[in-house]
């Protein structure tokens, strides 16, 4: 597959984690068709659960809006090829 350039739209994630997000997305696009958004999302979420602990959420698509609460430093929204990617970890709070 052609190597596309990912564009970060919004994030509060550490740089290293951002790179991992885009790498996981590229990897998923190599494995699955661009129309199979659910499999792409599953691949990325599982990767993040493995590397950074459980509780990650992933949404992939070409037309969606959303509202969510995320843990600090765990949110990234970017575009790659024709798709938009949202990755975040569910809300936590400090004791």
């Amino acid at each position: 597959m052609l190597e596309g350039k990912a564009v970060i739209e919004d994030t509060d994630m550490p740089d290293k984690m951002q790179i991992q997000a885009m790498a996981s997305a590229s990897e998923a696009l190599d494995l699955y068709d661009v129309f199979d958004c659910t499999s792409i999302a599953a691949h990325i979420k599982k990767e993040f659960d493995t590397k950074y602990g459980s509780g990650w959420q992933c949404v992939v698509g070409s037309s969606f809006g959303c509202f969510f609460t995320h843990s600090k430093g765990t949110f990234v929204y970017f575009t790659l090829e024709t798709l938009n990617f949202l990755i975040f970890k569910g809300a936590s709070y400090l004791i």
């Binding site: 958004c37 499999s39 959420q57 992939v60 698509g61 569910g90």
Partner: peptide, 8 residues
């Protein structure tokens, strides 16, 4: 109208 997701 067009998205897929995988969540816990």
């Amino acid at each position: 109208t067009s998205f897929g997701s995988y969540v816990t």
